[in-house]
């Protein structure tokens, strides 16, 4: 699963010092911002499944939406296939839109309830002229078949379908343009585990068949253990730790990562063994408007030192390919 061929080493997405701030009024003359994404560097290689993990307020979705062009970056750059795309989606070329697609979290609101599945799937085909006008219907059936749904689903309304089926339609729509890079924004977090398993398997199959690259956004570390090639952890707009999956779960370094791991409810003794024992989850996630000085995690950190309260740590390469942003390792 983790065999990355030499050809696939090529970088497809590079995010450099990306900042996305949202103004939220003023306090005594100085403007206040939600620093949703605050200086993120991220590289995704071709053919990879990069797992981006974080809790609410970590900025993982904002990062994804900025890459997609839904928000424009406050600072920094997004390089996609060697091309700078740090502009909102309305100013991007059709070919970038074709190559870069997203599957949203909530299958309820990502499909227009007043359209039929056929209308929904036709849109990308028409906009990007994927097939001739007269072959559109055939292509819609092919897309449905790709996500293992029967052809008559094209007459259904999203409202009449189950959550899992809706998410399959979302996936079919995202893949209709034959993209190279797909952002999956918690595609299964609203679904039951038995359905999640089916959808994930399908996503993996499609990734292999179509040589896709995924940026998989989630809060579920157990899921990432099983499908990601690399895992990145975000906390309050910044990346804490990033490493290849095996390495990441073998030796998690950042205290926050360990807290996350120890909080996961598991279903077997073997998993229980893997959870860091001494770490107990404490404290609240601070509001991203009012980020603590120094290391933003220091309020909850069991290994806090003097320096953590004043100096924001920087990224260091603790092991080859294993980066961590913590004073313990610098």
């Amino acid at each position: 699963m983790n065999s990355i061929t030499a050809a696939a080493e090529e970088t497809i997405l590079r995010v450099q010092n990306l900042k996305t701030y949202f103004p939220v009024g003023k306090s005594g003359g100085t403007p206040l911002f939600v620093k949703a994404v605050d200086g993120v560097n991220l590289t995704v290689k071709k053919g990879e499944i990069m797992g981006l993990v974080g809790e609410s307020g970590s900025g993982k979705s904002t990062l994804a939406y900025t890459v997609m062009g839904i928000y424009s970056p406050t600072e920094g750059s997004i390089i996609f296939k060697g091309q700078d795309i740090s502009v909102p989606s309305s100013r991007r070329s059709l070919s970038v839109k074709k190559d870069l697609q997203i599957v949203f979290q909530d299958p309820g609101s990502s499909l227009n309830p007043r359209q039929s599945v056929r209308q929904i799937l036709e849109l990308p085909l028409r906009v990007h002229r994927i097939v001739d006008r007269k072959n559109i219907e055939e292509k819609v059936v092919e897309l449905l078949r790709m996500v293992e749904l029967p052809p008559h689903y094209m007459y259904k309304s999203p409202v009449s379908m189950g959550g899992g089926e809706r998410q399959m339609i979302s996936i079919a729509r995202a893949l209709a343009t034959n993209p190279q890079f797909v952002i999956l924004d918690e595609p299964t977090s609203a679904l039951d585990v038995s359905i999640q398993a089916k959808i994930i398997n399908m996503l993996l199959k499609l990734q292999e068949k179509k040589e896709l690259t995924y940026l998989f956004i989630t809060h579920d570390l157990s899921l990432m253990r099983n499908i990601a090639t690399r895992v990145t952890i975000m906390y309050l707009g910044k990346i804490c730790e990033t490493a290849p999956t095996e390495e990441f779960f073998r030796s998690p370094l950042h205290p926050y990562t360990r807290m996350l791991l120890s909080s996961i409810p598991v279903v077997s003794e073997e998993e229980e063994e893997l959870k860091p024992k001494k770490v107990v989850s404490t404290g609240e996630i601070p509001s991203p408007v009012n980020v603590p000085p120094g290391c933003s995690f220091h309020l909850r950190c069991p290994e806090r030192r003097e320096v953590c309260m004043e100096v924001d740590p920087w990224m260091v390469e603790a092991e080859p390919g294993h980066f961590v942003r913590c004073h313990l390792y610098s």
């Binding site: 062009g69 989606s89 309305s90 839109k97 074709k98 909530d106 990502s110 227009n112 849109l123 979302s170």
Partner: peptide, 16 residues
């Protein structure tokens, strides 16, 4: 709504 965002990201025209 996400379905409008989707249509924008696909590149659909404003009239659509």
């Amino acid at each position: 709504e996400y379905f409008v965002k989707s249509a924008e990201l696909i590149g659909a025209g404003r009239l659509h």
